[in-house]
Nucleic acid binder design. Structure first.
Length: 583
RNA sequence: GCGCUCGUAGCUCAAUGGAUAGAGCAUCGGCCUUCUAAGCCGGUGGUUGCAGGUUCGACCCCUGCCGGGCGCACCA
């Protein structure tokens, strides 16, 4: 719908350029959405369906008063009244556009014809985007925080795809490092215990029940193979360094669980990228030597952080390999090798992002938990150092999820082993509720997830509210058949009520909502839109009898209702939520 | 102390630099003999944390305070 107005403005700009009032490049910049002025939706209804601030923004450049320029632009657009667009000058120099009722109604057959494609555009054509998300350590089950990142990343990927971008989804498996060793030790500890050779617990281990499950599975496969003689007589503590095969087994087990959890929420990845593969296949050396060639690495001593107590054993003052992150906006330079000579997590992450950068994407999106927020700058710095490009990476941080039940907070702690897993929550409330709910807030805001409310079938539950609107549409279809009413196309001109025209306007807003949600990486805009649309539909449904006696009216209202149902279904699909036909 | 982030109705939160800042919950009051009341309609409720600045125009951008969250050496 917006294209109608955009086309008009472009025509006006081109004509003013011919007349020498405005520079000629403006029209193209505007068409490409790179101009400073734009077509927007006025908040106030009396200001029309669309407005543009072009005259306000360009007045100085044109050496004219805003209202005078607005008049010139208005004349130049030569909006033909027959086109169904009326245009007026208002306020300090806005141009307001009013679509005729006839023009509005034309949207209905358009939506019905486009079907599942309505809402999709091609404005992102040419973009190749990689969305990396979840990337939870394979050291235990996913919790609800991971779930929020999973749902957010997947929705962002869907949004980009909807505006014509090429999108890939990727999961970075942190299957290296000390936490993995801890997992291995934890499994071995339980393994011995299960075999009847109790040992002292390792200094650091995961207490969760799932570790014992892994141990039992290991016994089932390998028997007592991983017990040494000294362990059998209980004289030795659990191995410091578990065998690779045991670690592999544990990682595979956990990753299988994680994949199953993601599958439960309909989340699928195009690629699973292993951190260990970087270590094994020289990826880290390659990335570091690349950085080194550019001169961004050096041997130096790190300044201790200010204003914070640092243990004396933490500060060794040794010379080490550092990356000049501070040259690219980070707060400090960052170490790349641990004291034992193995790469830091950051070094591996540099290598991973180097790999991604070399694959030719136009844009990288990483979805991280907010607790990793302090890490953003250094990765951005590394990417800029490696590619010479700023702004290739967009990091979306998701804030914590606060789980409540019956008004009480449900405490989660991985260390204490008392946490509610994502799967618990999905089993309890369903994937639709989890997905929708996790997208009801901007990702930067904390989120309360009320288990009882998410399950409830009430109007307080936004998921059901929206899904119910769709079910109502379908229910009307059923009623239409049951009563054997003639299903005529109807006369759309019979849709004259303000409620009907407003509903159409709202339907016309959908593609713009999708576009802005995608570019801003804010899926919650779609969620809000759907709640608004559902509210408008419920109101309409309550006030007007859809299955009217008059077949022309009935047909027209059914067309509007079907279009509404279609948009709700398309919107829910972008969030990965189902659109049930009955509830 | 530094960095990131958030401060908007009693609560939880929206609002691509636009015109009179919106929803839901809560609260108060209405609507079922009709297509699903799993719904709808109406009322109450605001100095957008504070102070400056940029702009024709600021919840939004910049600066400084105040307050909450997260992070801050070779943990990931």
């Amino acid at each position: 719908m917006r294209e109608i107005v955009i086309a008009l403005v472009i025509r006006g700009l081109e004509r003013l350029a011919q007349e020498g009032v405005l520079p000629p490049e403006l029209a193209r910049a505007f068409a490409e959405r790179s101009a400073e002025f734009k077509v927007e939706r006025p908040r106030e209804k009396t200001h029309g369906d669309f407005s543009t601030n072009a005259a306000l923004v360009l007045a100085r450049q044109a050496g004219m008063k805003p209202r005078d320029l607005a008049q010139r632009l208005l004349d130049a657009m030569a909006a033909d009244p027959a086109s169904g667009v009326r245009c007026t000058i208002a306020g300090p120099g806005f141009l307001n556009f009013y679509l005729s009722e006839e023009r509005l109604r034309q949207l209905i057959p358009q939506i019905l014809q486009l079907g599942s494609k309505y809402g999709q555009t091609q404005v992102g054509t040419g973009e190749r985007i990689l969305v990396e998300f979840v990337s939870a350590n394979p050291t235990g089950p996913m919790h609800v925080g991971h779930g929020r990142g999973a749902v957010t990343g997947d929705a962002i990927a869907r949004l980009f795809a909807a505006i014509g971008c090429q999108v890939e989804r990727e999961y970075y498996i942190n299957d290296a490092g000390t936490q993995i060793d801890v997992l291995g030790r934890s499994v071995l500890f339980r393994y011995r215990e299960c075999l009847g050779y109790p040992a002292s617990a390792p200094a650091d281990y995961y207490p969760g029940e799932y570790v014992t499950e892994i141990a039992r599975a290991l016994i089932e496969r390998d028997g007592e193979r991983w017990l040494s003689a000294s362990e059998r007589d209980g004289t030795r503590a659990t191995l410091e360094r578990p065998p690779e095969a045991v670690i592999d087994f544990a990682i595979d087990w956990v990753m299988q669980e994680i994949r199953a959890d993601l599958e439960l929420m309909q989340i699928r990845f195009d690629r699973w990228f292993s951190e260990r593969s970087l270590h094994r296949e020289g990826g880290i050396e390659r990335a570091l030597s690349h950085l080194s060639q550019q001169g961004w690495l050096y041997e130096g001593v790190l300044e201790p952080p200010k204003g914070r107590e640092v243990n004396s054993d933490e500060v060794d003052g040794r010379k080490q390999l550092l990356f000049r992150a501070s040259r690219f906006g980070d707060d400090a330079d960052r170490p790349l090798l641990k004291a034992d000579g193995t790469p830091t997590y950051f070094a591996a992450d540099i290598a991973y992002h180097f790999d991604k950068a070399q694959r030719g994407y136009t844009r990288l999106v990483d979805v991280w938990g907010a607790d990793h927020g302090g890490y953003v700058k250094r990765v951005e710095a590394a990417l800029e150092a490696m590619t010479g490009r700023k702004g290739l990476l967009d990091v979306v941080l998701t804030q914590m999820v606060n789980l409540t039940q019956g008004g009480k907070q449900v405490r989660m702690s991985k260390r204490a082993g008392t946490f509610v897993t994502l799967r618990d929550v999905v089993d309890e409330t369903g994937a639709d509720a989890v997905r929708f709910w996790f997208l009801t807030r901007s990702s930067g805001a904390g989120l309360d997830f009320d288990l009882d409310l998410a399950k409830s079938k009430s109007n307080d539950n936004p998921v059901f509210y929206v899904q119910y609107a769709h079910a109502r549409v379908c229910s009307l279809e059923v009623k239409l058949r049951e009563r054997e009413l003639e299903d005529v196309a109807g006369d759309l001109a019979r849709l004259t009520a303000p409620e009907e025209l407003d509903l159409i306007r709202l339907l016309g807003l959908f593609p713009e909502t999708v576009e802005s949600a995608a570019w801003s990486r804010e899926p919650h805009r779609v969620t809000y839109y759907l709640s608004d649309l559902a509210a408008a539909f419920h109101g309409y449904y309550n006030q007007f009898r859809i299955l009217d006696e008059d077949p022309q009216v009935r047909g027209a209202r059914m067309a509007l209702v079907r279009a509404t149902g279609r948009v709700i279904a398309n919107g829910l699909d972008l969030l990965g939520v189902s659109a049930p036909e009955s509830m």
